[in-house]
Simulated scan of single mutants.
Amino acid sequence: KTGVSPEVITFLTQKVIDMGLAPAELTPSVMEREEAAPTSFGHYTAIPHPMTPLTDKTFWAICTLEKPIIWGEKKVQFVCLLCVEKENAKDLKGMYRLLGELVHNVKFIQHLIACDTFEDMLDIMYKKAPSYKN
């Protein structure tokens, strides 16, 4: 049992699948990964991802929840589905550095959760990490 509402994972993965960015096996792969170990990191953040890379591009799919849920044993309100491209030859250090900053900065997460639009969220992220614009 994952200890996380599968509805959140299904919602995010299905959006990505519907956009043609990932194959249908994304959802079961992310659920399998969660069963291995929850991807909640504290500070209201979870970064679910598939067991193995399944997409042609690297990207995030982000959602915020109106109220925190228990994910594993931690409260989560900011969910960032991480999809890394199958044939990854790019240096992803900048992206992982930004994710690390997200996970460890509760005030930053609170700012993102409070955003009304995705554009507002991107603006906050770019101000936080101006060197990473990919």
Rank of each mutant, 00 (worst) to 15 (best):
K128C: 09
V84C: 11
L26C: 12
Y44I: 08
E119Y: 10
H43M: 11
Y132G: 03
G72Q: 12
M95D: 00
F118M: 13
Q110I: 11
K74W: 00
L54C: 06
F41D: 00
M51K: 14
D116L: 11
K86M: 10
I109W: 00
I124K: 15
K90D: 02
I69G: 04
A114V: 08
L12C: 03
S131R: 13
S40R: 04
M51N: 03
K75W: 04
C80F: 10
L12Q: 02
P50H: 10
V4S: 13
P28H: 09
T13W: 03
C115M: 08
E25P: 00
T117G: 06
F78R: 05
E87W: 03
G20W: 07
M51T: 13
T52N: 07
E66W: 02
E32P: 03
T117W: 06
K133E: 03
I109D: 00
D18H: 14
Y44E: 10
L81P: 00
V8K: 04
N134W: 01
H111F: 07
N134Y: 00
V4A: 15
H43A: 13
A61Q: 15
V76Q: 11
T39I: 06
M19G: 07
N88I: 06
V84Y: 06
L98P: 05
R33I: 06
K93V: 13
G20N: 09
E7H: 09
F108R: 08
A129N: 08
I69R: 05
V30K: 03
N105K: 12
T52S: 07
D116K: 15
K86D: 00
K86N: 06
L92H: 05
D120L: 11
P53H: 04
Y126K: 15
P23V: 10
L82N: 03
P6Y: 10
N105M: 08
A61Y: 12
V106Q: 15
Y132Q: 06
R97W: 08
T58V: 10
M95A: 12
H111A: 14
I9Q: 08
S131K: 14
E66A: 14
K67C: 02
D116V: 09
G20D: 05
A24M: 08
F108M: 12
M121W: 09
E73D: 10
S5E: 08
E25V: 09
N88C: 13
H104R: 15
T39Y: 03
G42E: 03
H104D: 10
E87S: 12
R97D: 09
L12S: 02
S5H: 10
A36S: 04
A24V: 12
E119V: 15
L122V: 11
L82F: 05
L98Y: 05
T45C: 09
A37H: 12
P68C: 13
T52K: 14
R33Y: 08
P6V: 15
T117F: 07
L112M: 14
G42K: 04
T13P: 04
P68M: 13
T2M: 14
F118A: 15
G3I: 09
T55I: 04
T10D: 01
V30R: 05
G94C: 09
V103K: 10
A46F: 01
P38M: 05
M121T: 10
S5Q: 12
L54D: 02
K1C: 12
T10K: 14
M125P: 03
E34L: 13
T39Q: 01
D18C: 13
G94T: 11
K74S: 03
K15S: 01
I62L: 13
P38C: 12
P28T: 07
K74Y: 00
